Amino acid sequence: MDRKIKLIWDFRGPEAKEIAKHHVIHLKEFAIKEGLDFFHADIEEINEMYCLAYITVREKDMIVYRDALKPHRGEVAK
């Protein structure tokens, strides 16, 4: 079974939430344009000055996403 990988981009500052929301739009557009599957793409608000955008993908597709989109980090999704 293929593991799910969560690719993460961190945004900080007063506009972090809005920037993260906008980034998610581009993550979804990339997946559709490239014909790649993904499970979920969304934001997570840590606090008012720190928010992250993420996309959860199959491990087999992770390298394509990583090389094209340069996430700040990744982790095995739960």
Rank of each mutant, 00 (worst) to 15 (best):
R3T: 08
R3N: 08
R3H: 11
I5K: 11
I5T: 02
I5S: 02
K6S: 09
K6Q: 15
K6T: 05
K6G: 10
K6H: 10
L7V: 08
L7N: 00
L7Q: 14
L7I: 04
L7M: 10
I8Q: 09
W9D: 01
W9C: 05
D10K: 14
R12E: 15
R12A: 14
R12I: 14
R12Y: 15
G13R: 12
P14Q: 15
E15P: 09
A16M: 08
K17H: 15
K17A: 15
K17V: 15
E18S: 15
I19T: 14
A20I: 08
A20Q: 13
K21I: 07
K21N: 14
K21L: 06
K21Y: 09
H22E: 13
H22P: 04
H23E: 07
H23T: 11
H23P: 05
H23R: 13
H23F: 14
V24L: 03
I25D: 10
I25P: 03
L27H: 00
L27C: 00
L27I: 06
K28Y: 09
E29R: 13
E29W: 07
F30L: 02
F30K: 04
F30P: 02
A31Q: 06
A31R: 04
A31G: 08
A31V: 04
A31E: 06
I32R: 12
I32A: 04
I32E: 06
K33D: 02
K33V: 03
K33T: 06
E34Y: 13
E34T: 02
G35D: 00
G35Y: 07
G35P: 03
L36M: 03
L36R: 01
L36S: 03
D37H: 11
F38S: 00
F38G: 04
F39G: 00
H40K: 12
H40D: 03
H40Y: 09
H40Q: 00
A41Q: 07
A41F: 04
A41I: 07
A41T: 00
D42S: 10
D42C: 04
I43V: 01
I43H: 05
E44S: 09
E44V: 00
E45F: 13
I46A: 11
I46C: 04
N47H: 12
N47K: 10
E48V: 05
M49Q: 11
M49L: 15
M49C: 10
M49R: 11
Y50G: 08
A53W: 08
A53S: 13
Y54T: 09
I55G: 05
T56C: 11
V57K: 11
V57C: 00
R58H: 11
E59M: 02
E59V: 00
K60R: 08
D61H: 05
D61K: 05
M62T: 08
I63W: 15
I63S: 13
I63K: 14
Y65C: 02
Y65K: 07
R66L: 06
R66S: 03
A68L: 12
A68W: 07
L69K: 06
L69G: 09
L69S: 08
K70Q: 02
P71A: 03
P71H: 05
H72P: 06
H72L: 01
H72M: 07
H72T: 06
R73G: 04
R73F: 12
G74E: 11
E75N: 06
E75W: 06
V76R: 10
A77T: 05
K78Q: 04
K78P: 06
